[in-house]
């Protein structure tokens, strides 16, 4: 199977050296061949479900919870900040 590693790396927000690419190109097809075994299973009458629990519509009140201590701790983790605001590279340029 042909895998466009450059495209998949872009989707993954990852970059690989030529050496790493060669390793992935050698490994991934084997794994994909292994998971492709599922094509042998007849699933025509089966609903695909992402979760198997019986829970539906688990709601809770949408109420803001003030916790100054946690807010401060989160800000403390920011790698870059201006006062209490998170500083990030520009999202829209020009």
């Amino acid at each position: 199977m042909d895998i466009d590693l450059t495209h998949i790396a872009k989707l993954s927000k990852l970059k690989f050296s030529e050496e790493e690419k060669a390793k992935l190109a050698a490994e991934l097809p084997g794994i994909i061949e292994y998971i492709a075994k599922l094509q042998e299973v007849d699933t025509n009458d089966i609903d695909a479900r992402a979760y198997l629990t019986d829970a539906v519509n688990v709601f809770r009140p949408d109420e803001p919870v003030e916790n100054e201590e946690i807010r401060k701790a989160i800000i403390e983790e920011f790698p870059k900040k201006t006062a209490d605001a998170l500083e990030v590279p520009g999202v829209f340029n020009d």
């Binding site: 998971i35 492709a36 599922l38 094509q39 299973v41 699933t43 089966i46 609903d47 695909a48 479900r49």
Partner: peptide
């Protein structure tokens, strides 16, 4: 792959 995986899971 993904949808097939979910069906086999079920």
């Amino acid at each position: 792959f993904y949808k097939k995986g979910l069906a086999v899971r079920t």
